[in-house]
Design a protein around this nucleic acid. Structure first.
Lengths: 146, 146
DNA sequence: GTGGTTGCAAAAGCTTTGCAATTGT
DNA sequence: ACAATTGCAAAGCTTTTGCAACCAC
């Protein structure tokens, strides 16, 4: 995917940082994921996928750097004790998470626009964003019924 | 507050676990807090407050035990790398969090009941709960304007 | 008295950091 | 060429765990 690669490199250089192989790989994984990922998820994905050389500490450093450039955001949520990261994008996504099989289903719309607007008026906060995850049991796991 | 103490002890024994000094202290701190707390918050509060003897690992163990008894819940959110815990209550609470000073303002209502009901119908999930936190800049920090 | 709990210290994660080697511009 | 970035290993966190001492029932 040379096209994507150029795109990611362009984003990086436009923010004044180098377009390294490792940064591009991390961005590619995050951009192609519908759900937030842990640093370890990203590390495993790149190591087992492309076969590129990469260390876990580099992933952490890249996530931190991309966070400062507002390309990536730490979600503030944890999964199994690990922090979750996602691409910052105009599109607003939330997930439906199965508490049995841990499947994540991305939801299309965000129903919270009006609520936030109302909140700005009543509290004086300038609202910059929110985290919203819904938990339940997915249809498959309901059938298994254990 | 002997009254509260009896109340907490009663909750514990009704769940089949012992009403120890440490458990009662932890419950007292959590019940009196409007916002979720870290294990360390609770530890410091008890150690510096009542002067009772307590170790941090005990706080973690108590939070785990109370979690299994569904008296307390790990929120799934992190604050400065530490997990947050809160009392499980029928009342549904969410927080407005200032990204500058990290103040947490509890919000009264949960606007998500209808949304969840709708989601159950369209996805087949049985929804059991959700996490919802809103981020922004509080009025104080907007004035400082840095 | 007895089993459940605690304290302490050590271990086990996740994440960060120092430093020499490497790489992108 | 040079500064930025990476890899490795070690350190720094929070959280968990083993075990002897202790305490609520």
């Amino acid at each position: 995917m040379a096209v994507d690669e150029c795109y990611y490199r362009e984003i990086l250089t436009s923010k004044g940082i180098k377009g390294t192989r490792q940064r591009i790989d991390v961005m590619a994984v995050l951009f192609s994921s519908a759900v937030p990922l842990t640093a370890d998820d990203i590390y495993i994905h790149i190591r087992d996928g492309g076969g590129e050389k990469l260390s876990l500490s580099t992933v952490y450093r890249i996530l931190d750097t991309l966070g400062q450039k507002e390309i990536v955001a730490k979600t503030g949520l944890i999964e199994g004790g690990k922090a979750l990261y996602e691409i910052v994008s105009g599109v607003h996504r939330h997930n439906l998470i199965c508490i049995k099989c841990h499947k994540l289903i991305p939801l299309g719309d965000c129903p919270l626009g009006d609520f936030e607007k109302n909140l700005e008026d009543t509290t004086g906060f300038r609202i910059s964003g929110h985290k919203f995850e819904i938990y339940g049991v997915c249809p498959d796991c309901r059938q298994i019924k254990q």
